[in-house]
Simulated scan of single mutants.
Amino acid sequence: MDKAKGRMKEAAGALTGNKDKKAEGRSDQRKGTAKEKKGHLKDLLK
């Protein structure tokens, strides 16, 4: 979910020229990726 939200924010920032919104979107995407990897690791350890 965070990855999708991040993509939307990044796209909105790119369209409007808002560098802060674009950076916030990239940050959200990284959070989503980290959560995804954490979930995969939990699955492996079960």
Rank of each mutant, 00 (worst) to 15 (best):
M8L: 15
K35H: 09
K37H: 10
S27H: 13
G13N: 00
A34C: 06
K42A: 08
G13V: 03
T16I: 03
L41M: 11
L44Q: 10
D20R: 12
A12H: 02
M1N: 08
D20A: 13
K35I: 03
A4H: 15
A11R: 12
M1T: 10
D20K: 07
S27Y: 11
L41Q: 06
E24C: 05
D28W: 01
Q29N: 01
R7N: 13
D28Y: 11
H40T: 14
K9R: 15
H40V: 12
E36H: 12
M8I: 14
R7T: 08
L41N: 06
M1P: 13
G32A: 00
N18K: 00
H40A: 09
G6N: 03
M8S: 14
K35E: 05
A23H: 00
K19A: 07
K19D: 06
R30G: 01
A34K: 04
G32I: 00
A34Y: 10
G25Y: 01
A14H: 11
R7L: 11
A23I: 05
A12V: 00
K5D: 01
R30I: 03
T33L: 12
K9D: 10
A14M: 09
H40G: 12
D2W: 05
Q29M: 02
A14W: 12
G17Q: 03
D43F: 06
K9M: 11
H40L: 12
E36Y: 03
K3L: 14
E10H: 06
A14P: 05
K35T: 07
T16P: 07
M8A: 15
Q29Y: 02
K35R: 06
K21I: 13
D43V: 05
G6I: 01
K5I: 10
Q29V: 00
G32M: 03
D20M: 06
K31V: 13
E24W: 04
K46C: 06
K22W: 00
A12P: 00
A14F: 09
K21S: 13
K42P: 00
D43S: 09
K19W: 07
K38M: 14
E10W: 01
D20N: 08
G25T: 02
D28M: 05
S27K: 15
G39M: 12
K42W: 05
K31I: 14
K19H: 10
A4Q: 15
T16K: 09
L15W: 10
M8F: 15
A23M: 04
L15Q: 08
K22E: 00
A34F: 09
K38S: 13
H40E: 13
T16N: 06
K3V: 15
K37D: 10
G32L: 01
G6H: 01
S27C: 07
G13I: 00
H40R: 11
D43K: 11
E36R: 10
K38D: 14
N18Y: 02
D20P: 12
D28E: 14
K5N: 14
Q29G: 00
A4G: 15
L41V: 09
M8D: 15
A11Q: 07
G17I: 05
Q29T: 04
D20C: 07
G39T: 13
G25H: 02
T33Q: 09
H40N: 12
K9E: 07
A11W: 02
E36K: 08
K46D: 11
R30S: 07
K31H: 12
K46E: 08
K5S: 11
D20S: 11
K35V: 14
L15I: 05
A14V: 06
K3H: 15
L15N: 05
